[in-house]
């Protein structure tokens, strides 16, 4: 597989995020538009319908280090959420507990992470988990 340099990949993802080319359930973009290293990202996940997360929008922080995409980004929830893969004290998504982070491939994208998290929310095991009040943050 060809190796895509970090910044090319991130630029591509940035464009995809800004133009909203995904399926519309997740959104992401740079937290600081002037950040030429494109390390800090914001993400939102729109709660899947039919779950307790419906009508909620979850905000996340994603950090891509210098070795992205070889290393997965670190992901934190800003909005409080009760999910098994999320550390309840820090909001950090435990890489070992989220499929796409534990088996990270350099072809994965930030959107893949958000979509995987959304899938976790819709997972029948999790979709009825009691959730902290909307608007609370870690």
């Amino acid at each position: 597989m060809t190796k895509v340099p970090r910044n090319f990949k991130l630029l591509e993802e940035l464009e995809k995020g800004e133009k909203g080319l995904g399926d519309g359930t997740c959104s992401y973009g740079l937290s600081n538009g002037e950040d030429i290293y494109m390390s800090d990202w914001n993400g939102t996940i729109i709660g899947p319908t039919g779950t307790i997360h419906e009508n909620r929008i979850y905000s996340l922080k994603l950090y891509c280090d210098d070795n992205y995409p070889n290393n997965p980004p670190t992901v934190h929830f800003i909005s409080r959420i009760n999910l098994p893969c999320v550390n309840q004290h820090t909001g950090k998504v435990e890489p070992s507990r989220l499929g796409c982070l534990s088996q990270w491939k350099s072809s994965n994208s930030l959107e893949d992470i958000l979509l995987d998290l959304r899938r976790e929310m819709a997972n029948p095991v999790n979709k009825k988990l009691p959730q902290p009040p909307e608007g609370s943050t870690f």
Binding site: G17, E18, S27, Y28, G29, L30, S31, G33, W41, N42, G43, T44, I46, I57, S59, L60
Partner: peptide, 20 residues
């Protein structure tokens, strides 16, 4: 209505140019 752009939920009171 919630407006989401670039991973952020837009706040009612903000001007739109804040979000670039």
């Amino acid at each position: 209505m919630r407006l989401v752009y670039s991973g952020r939920v837009l706040k009612d009171e903000d001007m739109l140019d804040l979000y670039g």
